[in-house]
Nucleic acid binder design. Sequence first.
DNA 1: AAATATCTTAGCATTCCGCTCGGAATTTGT
DNA 2: ACAAATTCCGAGCGGAATGCTAAGATATTT
Lengths: 145, 145
Amino acid sequence: MHLSTRGHYGLLAMFDLAEHYGSGPISLKTVAERQNISDNYLEQLIAVLRKAGLVRSVRGAQGGYILAREPGSITVGDIIRAMEGPIAPVDCVSEVEPAECDQAESCITRLVWTRVRDKLTEVMDSISLADMLRDAENLSIAKKV
Amino acid sequence: MHLSTRGHYGLLAMFDLAEHYGSGPISLKTVAERQNISDNYLEQLIAVLRKAGLVRSVRGAQGGYILAREPGSITVGDIIRAMEGPIAPVDCVSEVEPAECDQAESCITRLVWTRVRDKLTEVMDSISLADMLRDAENLSIAKKV
DNA sequence: AAATATCTTAGCATTCCGCTCGGAATTTGT
DNA sequence: ACAAATTCCGAGCGGAATGCTAAGATATTT
């Protein structure tokens, strides 16, 4: 049950953009440095996010990336699906076009994986970038006290 | 969010053993054929389950494998941990010795992954092989009607 | 025109996956 | 005692994915 760095870095980058939402485009280099990711690599990852319609890009000098929608309407699930494909512990319970299996009807393990998948999507879809911003604020307040 | 075939096949094999719990040792070949897994490969996987203390082996003719404990006391979580290692979407929230990260204290994505991990373990630890046997029974009853 | 960015594609070393194979060790049955 | 059935163990291997690097094309601002 492991995510690749795609999903991991993808969420880091998106959260970084969320933290600076409203201040114009943020350059890839800035995000990469702040999040400690190779900018060459992040370049590829953010291309995926752009194609998925989660970020907008502004080319040229002073360009960069901006969230395509407000932080409240982008969830962790959106980001992970974009970066890692449909959420599914095993292929036969994939969210989209599940792999076929001749014993699917009577397969008990399939029931298990369905429950696991449902819990996964439930959590991931319930957390938005806005929720994370709120968490960040609470955390910094707690620290100051 | 994908399992490897290790976990997938591991659960299939364990459930197969659970279905025949109490009828003496089941040979690897039998399980492999019933579950449609290469027996050469399953041989390696079941070695892992044995080393994890989840199955007992009986060598020699008429030998095979038996669940080490009753089906009610073996959970999906036990099996997945044995086959795939500690449950963790990313290394910094691993159940055992999480990877260190200098920003761990203030990392918001880490909170997200912790919640995901907790949901994952919650589901997996709540389903035992006995539960699955019950599901199988309900399913076959439903079909007959 | 120069500087600053994104965009696109190619490549590449390493690791992991999913297996196959061969043979040693152990137990049962005849 | 011997043959058959089985687990046990380790080596190896092709293919795919991972996590990058690198280089140049394109667009925009100053």
